[in-house]
Design a protein around this nucleic acid. Structure first.
Lengths: 117, 117
DNA sequence: GTACTTGTACGAGTTTGGTCGAACTTAGCA
DNA sequence: TGCTAAGTTCGACCAAACTCGTACAAGTAC
């Protein structure tokens, strides 16, 4: 394993974790990722409370074990809903707003205006 | 084939099969129902090819056993996406456009413009 | 009546997905 | 050096869902 620093930041942000291209986004897959109330709440909170760019997994106040959170954030990222970057220890997430609005206009509005029943 | 025009209903249409109220529609549940490509195709076809009011299950040209189709149409109906009425032998389906547009505006546009990959 | 058609109901097999514990990796810090 | 914190990976368990065959019910037509 390299002891050389990862060179995390030459010019900007850390490169995102593996994710599908914008052109590959699939509506059934995205809908499936959003069909879980916990994940829908994560995306909604990211859309509404984004006073910062992105948030670590911990800042959602979800009362679940860490391995469960990993599972859900990974599902959202692999579906193309979230982009995740590694900042030192923490892995911050943001919604891929531009990509989703371009491919599925109106979808994020539905998520943002979701009222948990 | 009937030579008598259909009009099977004296006062109106047959009452719909059990379905959730418009106020009970749940975004995660609806998204889950639409996250299956086969079901997404059913709803899309209903939205685009509706020269008539509603269609029997058979007129979708889906190459699956009948018990599988029953399963998927039931899933869509119980999620509140479809309304189904019994016309003699056949059970015709229509999309609950008004209810869905009112609760989740823009969602049906996404479904209608879905391009199967 | 018989035969045909549309669709359901039930059950079994299989797959997928959510939940979680435990062990591990990594970064930062004292 | 060691500790702590954030998050992953693995494996297991369990529940839900998809697929399908078979049997069955109810109209329709002859």
């Amino acid at each position: 394993m390299p002891d050389i620093k990862v060179l995390p930041e030459p010019a900007g942000l850390p490169s995102p974790l593996p994710e599908p291209d914008a052109a590959e986004l699939s509506l059934p897959v995205v809908l499936g990722a959003l069909s879980d109330p916990l994940r829908l709440g994560i995306v909604r909170k990211l859309l509404l409370d984004r006073e910062e760019f992105d948030h670590p997994c911990g800042w959602f106040g979800i009362d679940r074990p860490k391995s469960s959170l990993t599972h859900h954030f990974k599902a959202l990222r692999e579906a193309g809903v979230l982009r995740q970057r590694q900042y030192g220890l923490e892995r911050r997430s943001e919604v891929r707003i531009a990509d989703l609005d371009e491919r599925f206009p109106g979808l994020l509005n539905l998520v943002a205006s979701w009222t948990t029943p």
